[in-house]
Computed example of a mutant assay.
Amino acid sequence: MKAIETTATIDKNGQLTLDRSLGVIKPQRVRLIILISEDDEADPDETPTEIAIEGIHQGLREALAGQIIPLSEM
């Protein structure tokens, strides 16, 4: 069994919409564990996945372009 973690939205009809494709090629049944925040507000300290991924991509582009800061200067 393989585990995949992602985020999704539950709409007003109770339907679940994934924020990104899972990359699964063949149709199949799956088991889900859904974690729902008990408070009405999102965690202000949690960066949305899309923003976090873009930040990682940006950092990689900068590193590959030689735009780095030595650790001793940080």
Rank of each mutant, 00 (worst) to 15 (best):
I33H: 12
V30G: 04
R20A: 13
G14N: 11
L35Y: 08
K12Q: 07
Q15H: 04
S37D: 15
S21C: 06
R29L: 15
L18V: 03
S21G: 05
R31M: 09
L22D: 03
E41Q: 07
L32T: 06
P27N: 04
I36S: 13
D19H: 14
L18F: 07
V30I: 10
L35P: 00
R31A: 12
V30W: 05
K12D: 09
D39E: 13
L16D: 02
E41F: 02
L16Y: 03
L32A: 08
I36A: 14
D11Y: 03
K26P: 00
I25G: 13
L18T: 12
T17L: 02
K12W: 01
L22I: 08
L32K: 11
L22V: 12
D19Y: 00
R31N: 12
D40W: 02
L16W: 13
E38W: 10
I34M: 05
G23P: 00
K12L: 11
I36H: 01
S37R: 15
R29V: 07
R20Y: 10
D11K: 09
E41S: 10
S21F: 08
E41I: 14
I33K: 15
R29S: 10
T17C: 06
V24K: 06
T17V: 04
L18M: 02
D39S: 14
L35H: 11
D40T: 11
R29T: 13
R29E: 14
V24C: 15
D11I: 10
K12R: 07
E38N: 15
N13W: 10
D39M: 10
I33G: 14
L18A: 04
L16Q: 02
R20I: 01
D39I: 05
E38I: 15
K12Y: 03
I25H: 05
L22Q: 03
I34Y: 02
D19E: 10
